[in-house]
Amino acid sequence: MTSPSFSPDAVRRLARLARLSVTDADVARLSRELEPILAHVRALGAVDTDGVAPTAHVSVDRLPLRPDERAEELDRELVLGEAPARAPEGFVVPAFVDEG
């Protein structure tokens, strides 16, 4: 058997990739719960799939195209009114251009 895929350090790294803050209790729980799930999933490796094409989507051969026309728009005030922090004409995010 391989080494644990969901060691506490690995869980923290994945959570960071997923932009998800986790508490120590979260890490312990995720580590404990994900390992048996992955063990179950590993059985897929034994299925013979030589020459079998992957299915990303059923019944969708290609993405359809449509004319690039202006469609119904959402009301800006309604949309911005749902934002937890807004400026007069936009969403508010922390400054990020000069980060690391």
Binding site: S5, V11, L14, A15, A18, V22, D26, L30, L34, I37
Partner: peptide, 9 residues
């Protein structure tokens, strides 16, 4: 959280 972390993996 469980599925987001599993998906990231």
């Amino acid at each position: 959280k469980r599925r987001v972390v599993l998906g990231a993996y």
